[in-house]
Design a protein around this nucleic acid. Sequence first.
DNA 1: TATGAATGAGCGTTCATTCAT
DNA 2: CATGAATGAACGCTCATTCAT
Lengths: 214, 214, 214, 214
Amino acid sequence: MNDNSNANLNARQHRGAKRRAKTRADLLAAARHVFARKGYHDASILDITEAADVGVGTFYLHFRDKDEIFNTLIDEVLRILEEQVINEVLSSEAVTLPVIVRSIFHHAYAERDLFSIALASGAQVAQTIRVEDMIAQGLTRAFERATQSGQLQGYDIFLLARLVTGVIAQGIIWWFEQDDPGPEEMAQNVLNLLEHGLPASLFEENLLPPGTEL
Amino acid sequence: MNDNSNANLNARQHRGAKRRAKTRADLLAAARHVFARKGYHDASILDITEAADVGVGTFYLHFRDKDEIFNTLIDEVLRILEEQVINEVLSSEAVTLPVIVRSIFHHAYAERDLFSIALASGAQVAQTIRVEDMIAQGLTRAFERATQSGQLQGYDIFLLARLVTGVIAQGIIWWFEQDDPGPEEMAQNVLNLLEHGLPASLFEENLLPPGTEL
Amino acid sequence: MNDNSNANLNARQHRGAKRRAKTRADLLAAARHVFARKGYHDASILDITEAADVGVGTFYLHFRDKDEIFNTLIDEVLRILEEQVINEVLSSEAVTLPVIVRSIFHHAYAERDLFSIALASGAQVAQTIRVEDMIAQGLTRAFERATQSGQLQGYDIFLLARLVTGVIAQGIIWWFEQDDPGPEEMAQNVLNLLEHGLPASLFEENLLPPGTEL
Amino acid sequence: MNDNSNANLNARQHRGAKRRAKTRADLLAAARHVFARKGYHDASILDITEAADVGVGTFYLHFRDKDEIFNTLIDEVLRILEEQVINEVLSSEAVTLPVIVRSIFHHAYAERDLFSIALASGAQVAQTIRVEDMIAQGLTRAFERATQSGQLQGYDIFLLARLVTGVIAQGIIWWFEQDDPGPEEMAQNVLNLLEHGLPASLFEENLLPPGTEL
DNA sequence: TATGAATGAGCGTTCATTCAT
DNA sequence: CATGAATGAACGCTCATTCAT
């Protein structure tokens, strides 16, 4: 009977754990939709629990507050981003900036809704880590390697990584309002700019010929 | 006597108007500090009126709601930015991208607190116009001129303007957390990147030599 | 010189008094319009001063609060009602109920807006005297005389006066929503009811013949 | 087990629903007292929740705003009035005006506080239906039947119903300030007036004999 | 573990009232 | 006497959070 009741107990615990995990996943999925539709600040916990079809109180059994579920969501997408980029990078012949950038854009495009939340919330929300931080970190590591091999002397690579992050982030932000161009073309545009810069004429010629008004 | 009473009336109105303008300016200054310290969403109207040392009700004598004072603040800084860039551009020999970018960074550095609010609020706040929009618009106009003179063929200049805006915005965002480098050097870094792009090796060589771990 | 300055003083005081009276009259007229349009509770003092085209503070130089201007307005119309009824009554051959009722309806019709305010505000507003009170008082006096001359024995004439007031008030309230019938016909209807009562059949016959549903 | 858990679920829901209904009833009872004491406009939601001994927010779990709880209260009493009048009328031998009027007064006396609120609020409050409307409607229906059977020719029965409503309403309003006479005697007074009208002398003789002052 | 009715701090907002001019 | 900018008490309302079930 002891065995039996232990087995029961285990079975029950197992069922309980599965149920718990299911509820938690429901909440995360609901939060994703709600944040995407209403934005971080206008989303209430009631919105989320209703979308997840659970009681209000249930929320607090899984997350401390709105911040926590938000950060969980962001962390998750960042973790997946990291994984995917690493995988793609490892499966490619040579690890180059184009490979990294293309990988980021593909993932960001697939997860547009979440990225839009993450980027739009900007510095407004107390986040454990921001999307920009993660991209900038990755770039910094790449630049550090380039420095070691003699390139990029005279650059502040942290600042440089941030500036390049700005271009990439802006590419993702572009998708807030339109879906075109897709990730491949977007990556091409960004890489073009990063590889060759803008036409020299913009830096030399008068953009406002004498006699023209603004 | 008519003259006299008219003069009195004017004086009275003038005094009243001056007092009113002073209070309004106090509120704007207070809002600037409060928004910078707490961010748009966590700033309450009570915070602003207390910082301005006026009664709560006074706020509503000057602004309809938080949105309005915020947009007033942003509009003001954008108006000044536009003015200053135009002035600097007009007083320079030739209107080139470096002139424009340098001008933007100088102004943004001087008004760091306000720009941090404007950029950090991102798409979260219903703004009449966003800083990024204004910069992107200016760049688009410049690019349009370059297109007309044969450059930039094959580019989507709207997307390109946005991407370049991303670099500039990131330069300003850099100042949220540190004051160095100053506007001149920041402009140099940005212009360097925009003019020559990143070193070619980043696009070709393996950033992760075989046998190295991430 | 003394004479002269006294004369000046008097003249000035006179001008001042006239000006003051004018402002007060403006406020009363404005209050009338505002109360009629928005009702007592939704009318703000700002509404009144704006309609009167005077400063907010000016209001308080003439009236203690909204209640006071409201009561002043009601008192005024009641005073005029009383005067007019007395005049009409005195100029008629014999003072009978029809004369009184007709007189009330004519005045009430002419001053519909004010009466609508006065009656609609009901017991909601702390009034010094209510329209119904004044009508009931007048009727009570008339009934007292009739009692003295042997009529109306066994009646509680105070209650009776109130009930009759109810009919008259309802006649006036009828005009809140439509302008017809006019005062003469309305008086006829009311007097008809008061003189002969309702048809006897209503008190005897079955209003709901067997087999009929409600 | 399914049965069991369903039973549990039902029990839980039932308990919750009972608690909810209790709170709602508390709020309605409290609102009744507060409205009766302070009148509609001077009653705040805090007044009501404090009287009901619940939190402020609880109010909004049950009613949208003050208007809604007020109308709920009025609707309820009107519904009960209608029911009771119909019952009494149906259980009487013949449906006559006296039966109807007596029934109204008995109910109104029992619910004096609520009727005082409903009648005093007059046209000031946005009500779905007003007490006077309901009484007038009932009378109109009765008069329509009388018209069909040949009585009441030449009358505007809508106006007539309103005027009679005025008498009845005034009878109820009488109880705002005193409790006597009770419903039976009040009905007698009203019916007397409605059946026979006022003494003819009031319509003919001089109420103000020559030589008498007002 | 899940529920959802209840809570109340805290917000935005109005408006009668004051007072320096 | 007249003004209107300033005031702040008091309101309606929301929503994160708790807790008995």
